[in-house]
Design a protein around this nucleic acid. Structure first.
Lengths: 178, 178
DNA sequence: TGACACATGTAACGTGTTACATGATTCG
DNA sequence: CGAATCATGTAACACGTTACATGTGTCA
């Protein structure tokens, strides 16, 4: 299977919700969507150029202040078509995402390994903190389960919370001193 | 943070368990360890060459039949040192592994979307099957919780099972018709 | 003798990260 | 007026996937 360049579709999807600048797109990958896909501005700007050249997006210059011109991009009919084709296509399930810590654990031979407790504790601190942060976002954005107009957003947050919960439970269960 | 070339350490770790050929290393990434890291032979053979050039591994020629010479690699003292340094170093926690399906879900606006049920069902079939497979491996390799001599192997299997369980539960909960 | 697994390598390309580079706006 | 953020771009490099390429061993 050829590489599909998923980034282009994510950009189309974000621009379909509302027109955005490259800078705003970049920030979007640091929030909710970043839980399951990330990208730097150095990938985004060239991709925007290619999407515009192929007629899937257009931009308007927006001037704020004296000189600063930013480009606000919007999806064209063509782009919306490509987005819907992508959404409707069968999705190759994700297999074996890379996890350096899990691989390190594979090389720990016995529960007595003196490094084990510290390694687990460090990861647990991080993932517990992340879980807290995600739960706060959930209560802030979806108080009392209101999610009918923004279901996808709710789904990925819920997914991330379940993932981090399972990760923490694994880390706790892996500690033989508990 | 510079890219750390994790692959080299995984190879060292696998060779530290027992000497292996490039072909056998390649197969290792299709089994247990493949749940959290994968690599093709086209990455492995060049990496073996580099590891040998830097003195971290050596190889012996092994001839089977008339002509077929395979190279069986083993870790040197240097290599074992590098492996232990890697294992002992702090591990940058994994953030936001890429998941194309989760990203697609982000763009589903409402629970009424006509594509939703089919999308969820297809993923659920896959992940349920995978979960079954993992559970079978677990009972086959660790009947009655015997894992003291192969703890890491047990840990990653357990991790993969928890991950797939959480994934399935998410997919089921995301289906509004249930 | 044909298919399939074993076995090793290189080349081309796509994707992702880090670093380089520049300048404007806002707010204290 | 200095720092932080807004804003856009390119270049170099690292990593990963797919395709190309070749040959042996085993078993039906």
């Amino acid at each position: 299977m050829a590489l599909r360049n998923v980034l282009q579709f994510i950009i189309l999807g974000l621009l379909d919700q509302q027109p955005l600048t490259g800078y705003e797109l970049t920030k979007a990958f640091d929030s909710d969507i970043g839980e399951f896909w990330s990208a730097n501005h150095s990938q985004i700007y060239p991709q925007l150029r290619r999407l515009e050249q192929s007629g899937q997006i257009t931009h308007e210059e927006e001037v704020s202040g004296e000189k600063l011109a930013r480009k606000r991009y919007a999806v064209t009919a063509d782009g919306r078509g490509a987005l819907n084709d992508w959404l409707s296509a069968e999705t190759e399930p994700t297999v074996g995402g890379r996890d350096e810590f899990a691989v390190k654990m594979y090389f720990i031979k016995t529960p007595d390994d003196p490094r084990l407790a510290h390694m687990l504790a460090a990861q647990l601190r991080f993932h517990e903190q992340k879980l807290d942060h995600l739960k706060m976002q959930m209560t802030r954005k979806f108080p009392d389960g209101q999610n009918n107009n923004d279901y996808g957003h709710y789904l990925v947050l819920d997914h991330a919370i379940r993932r981090e919960t399972a990760y923490c439970e694994w880390l706790e269960s892996a500690n033989p001193n508990q």
